[in-house]
Simulated scan of single mutants.
Amino acid sequence: MTPPPFTVPSQAGRTAVVTGATSGLGLATARALAAAGARVVLAVRDVARGEAAAAGLTGEVEVRRLDLADLASVRAFAGAWTGRLDVLVANAGIMMVPRGRTADGFELQFGTNHLGHFALTNLLLPHVADRVVTVSSGAHRMGGLDLTDLAWERRPYSPERAYGASKLANLLFTLELQRRLTAAGSPVRATAAHPGWSATNLQGHTGNRVKHAAMALGNRVVAQSGEQGALPTLFAATADLPGGSYAGPEGAFELRGQPTLVGRSRAASDPGLAARLWTASAELTGADFPTPLSAARV
């Protein structure tokens, strides 16, 4: 018997932060959480766009500025947070863009997709009451991590491989974060999700007309909607799942379908690599797991 489609349970009385919520998967995630009763904070780089997005949502919605490619912005956002935070959804990201650098000199995709969220999570963690959801990708399977060259200074730069590496880092971060939370006796859970192939504007910034055309064709022929693509994130954020869970679409090749628990690559399951990446990330960002976790949750 086919189970009923997943629906978001009531989020009344809960507060969620969704990064990158001006469009696409982030906006769809924020819309669903707000509609279910949560207070939702849209953490966005462009506040004007965030306000325009918030105007189309129902419920209690707030917009705050956050640029994940600038650690000063990350620290300002976290430093201004007070009170309880039930769910942090680390959704924002860039995909297969030309070579670039963050404000702090990191490779742009790794710096935005992983290091920005790494710092944000650790800085906000004393406030988090329930879970941290990190959005990865099936592309993590094509990524490899060279911890001696995270900035791609010695290797030929590949937008595809750099993106895959950043998404692999997302899963390794979830793995090590859950290990640390468990060791600290914290009830907070770290989960991850990927959207399958979803038709959003994420694929439109490669700077390559051939790649752009191919992805646009895939969006029309293969992809599911942003609302459907957000379901694994919502599942990871609101369903009763064990820490360390990874959610994705149930369909063929995990491209589309209802959310379910999915597998990950061998590299993404390597606790030793996860621990070494954590150490490197803490050194690069100056942010680390708060010990002990404070009692800021109110």
Rank of each mutant, 00 (worst) to 15 (best):
A199V: 00
A162P: 09
H194P: 00
E160S: 07
V133A: 06
G144Y: 04
A190S: 14
D149S: 12
P195K: 05
S166T: 10
H212I: 13
A184K: 04
A184D: 10
L150Q: 13
H212E: 15
E176F: 08
R179W: 06
A162V: 14
Y157K: 13
H205N: 11
N170A: 14
L181N: 14
L172G: 01
G196V: 01
L150A: 05
L145A: 06
R179S: 02
M215T: 02
A169G: 12
G143C: 03
R189F: 05
N170W: 08
P156M: 03
E160F: 05
G164F: 15
G196A: 05
A214T: 09
A214M: 14
A192N: 00
S166N: 15
V128E: 06
M215F: 09
P156E: 03
T182I: 02
R141V: 08
R131Y: 11
T206Y: 08
A216H: 11
R209S: 12
S158Y: 02
T182F: 11
S136A: 10
V188P: 01
A193Q: 02
V133R: 11
H194Y: 00
V128S: 05
A199G: 00
W197C: 00
P156S: 04
S137E: 08
V135R: 03
R179I: 04
A216Y: 15
Q178W: 09
H194N: 08
N201E: 14
L175M: 07
R209N: 07
G143D: 04
A199I: 01
L175F: 03
L177D: 04
